[in-house]
Design a binder for these strands. Structure first.
Lengths: 211, 211
DNA sequence: TAGATTGTTAATCGATTAACAATC
DNA sequence: TAGATTGTTAATCGATTAACAATC
């Protein structure tokens, strides 16, 4: 068996998009797709798709393309999505509630198993059937649920201490909505969702139109 | 005057992070910073910061570093953030409401001037002082407010037709929260916010820990 | 068989980093 | 002056694309 190279992170970040597009194809009842066709749907070149997939094996047939269901299953397995992942969510403001209530998480193998907030009025209430707890309960809940994924939706000023608690309690990957760069150990994965920064990068181009 | 190269998009996408970090420095009363110090705060190398800034001019002093306020103002001007930008938001579900209510938009020069939804029960109601209107009013509102930025927070199945209407009405940049890749003309900027895809890319690594 | 499309290699392109002269 | 840090060039690194033999 030949040794395959470690796939770069940029490839890993595209895999979920491939998986999703394949799911849509399945829903449409399409059961075969070429790299060309798949690429057109997600604005990626056919060569890039084939190259990306080649990090993980050979999933297609020359002259034919890919079996949608088979490739979908392969990618789900590669991403670890054959299991459901427990996720804790810190910060149950408007955004946190929207996240907790979004069933796109649950249907995609991401189960919110803990909600945390500092607001005494919120603690004890339930959102989407999960009780909101005080920060003090984080370690216990993370331990009991074996969660390694966390979503941080607290104000910027709270994000770093919250991340510290989470990591200390065993969290290994954080999706951070707070507009701040977290300082974390090398063995913790952190990704950011930052709509204001994204919009600001587009105003750059808009400000230059018609000039 | 020398001709400066067009900055790559990857540089443009970092500018808002520099701007934000500089704002935090200002708030802390720090008025001078080196590329090294700034880089440590946002996990970027000093060389990258200097190289990025060099696309736009010379803003520092050898031996000293950068004047925080001056550099901040420069970057805001580069990004077009000396003006406020009208933004329309389509889809006023939980997520849309969280976005409309988030004052981080307003305080950062992004003013929500239009809210749109298909739900007859929502139409006519107000969120954050803006009335929710039917899709039919989009062209008029976009025209009247001169909005060129839009946020799409509708279900995946609605996102493409909504984008078509927006673009037809004059929108030139879209921030899309729907889990679908939009097909748009070349002169429209589209960026995506996709928490599920981000989490799925992290499960890849988590599934491989301790193996 | 002829046509289509894969998987892979090599070429290209672009982004990051290292290094250092200039200079505050 | 000595020390620090910029702006910029060149070197390196990494990702994308083009091309094509293999083969369904």
């Amino acid at each position: 068996m030949e040794r395959l190279e470690d796939p770069p992170d940029v490839v890993i970040r595209r895999l979920p998009l491939y998986a999703r597009s394949l799911r849509y194809l399945l829903d449409e009842g399409i059961n075969s797709v070429s790299s060309q066709e798949l690429g057109e749907r997600i604005n990626v070149t056919a060569a890039q798709i084939r190259k990306d997939l080649s990090y993980f094996g050979e999933f297609g047939k020359q002259g034919i393309g890919y079996d949608v269901e088979k490739l979908f299953n392969h990618i789900e397995r590669i991403l670890g999505l054959t299991q459901s992942w427990p996720v804790v969510l810190v910060g149950v403001g408007h955004l946190g509630q929207a996240i907790a209530r979004y069933d796109g998480f649950h249907s995609q193998g991401l189960q919110i198993v803990g909600l945390f907030d500092t607001d005494p009025l919120k603690i004890g209430q339930k959102v989407a059937d999960v009780e909101i707890c005080a920060y003090a309960h984080m370690p216990q809940v993370i331990h009991d649920t074996n969660a390694r994924l966390a979503i941080v939706a607290v104000p910027a000023s709270d994000a770093q201490p919250v991340a510290d608690i989470l990591i200390d309690a065993g969290i290994r990957a954080i999706l951070c909505y707070a507009p701040i760069i977290l300082q974390t150990p090398d063995d913790v994965w952190v990704r950011y969702i930052d709509p204001v920064a994204v919009l600001h990068s587009m105003t750059y181009y808009l400000a230059r139109e018609h000039m």
